[in-house]
Design a binder for these strands. Sequence first.
DNA 1: ATAGGTCAAGCGAGG
DNA 2: CCTCGCTTGACCTAT
Length: 323
Amino acid sequence: MIRRLGYACINMIHSDPTLVKKADRVTTNRTCRLATFQQLGMDHIKSLVLDNARDLHTILEWNETQGIRLFRLSSDMFPFLAHPEVGYDISDLGPEISEALAKCGEFIAKHDHRISSHPGPFNVLASPSPNVVDNTIRELDAHPAIFDAIGFSQNHNSKINIHVGGAYGDPDAALDRWCTNFARLSPSAQARITVENDDRASLYSVRALYDNVYKRTGVPIVFDYHHHIFCTGGDSEADALALAISTWPSGIVPTTHYSESHELHVGNDKPTPKHSILINALPDPHGHTIDVMIEAKGKEQALLPHQTSAMRNRDWWSAEADA
DNA sequence: ATAGGTCAAGCGAGG
DNA sequence: CCTCGCTTGACCTAT
């Protein structure tokens, strides 16, 4: 059974520049260039973050009206949060921002929304470059600060999801480095990290993650249905899903990712990793209870046609959540 | 107002 | 060798 559907970072109907005037956009993704920061200073970043934080609340309210209680927080919400030179503490941004973030946290708790994050592809714990690893650790350790400022529980319900990041011609050595460097993360980051299977055969299948990451670190695996097509590790979809689900702690509904191939949507025969704008179907939960993050260019517009009345029905999902 | 070039950041695939 | 795609386009300047 699919418990919830969610979408990532952007609400199209409230932010698409072809639909909404720039001044009226509701978005958590306001950022700036380094040059602009150097010109305008921290006051500019504070202004961007405050607008982002207030708009997050608006998006969450809209999600609630649609029965959408799964959402991915953009890591762009706090520009340069973990930048080697610019980096700052959220608590230093002032009471106005702290209050706006806490207000989001209260809404999330009250309506039982589930919020996650997915830091960018620059986060490579497996990198042979010490500098890349240092930057990654700084970035990943910054995410619990975001979650704490808003007020999420410190577990995999609000996950920080990443990929292993690279193979460098020697996947085993890369996996060793990943596990070694994982131990350097703060405990609050470690408690929330998940790993996701890759969309290329040269990288990491669910099976590879299970054997080389989960067994050594206990880090749960996020199953991406679409990626699995390109990197099966020899497992069927049902087997890979079951293996990934087995890595999740009890009491936390496993999250999965679902998307469809853009190439198939435009009439070509060969699927590629590129995401389609909308989706034609929902994935098969193969008898498990899962949450599904829809990764489609159309964001909530891809999700909405697939919301069932049961998903919109508060009584139903509350009962399920309690079960 | 809009179009086009640019932007902190890593990696691998494809042309 | 360069561009794209990924997690997620958005910023900024010129016209």
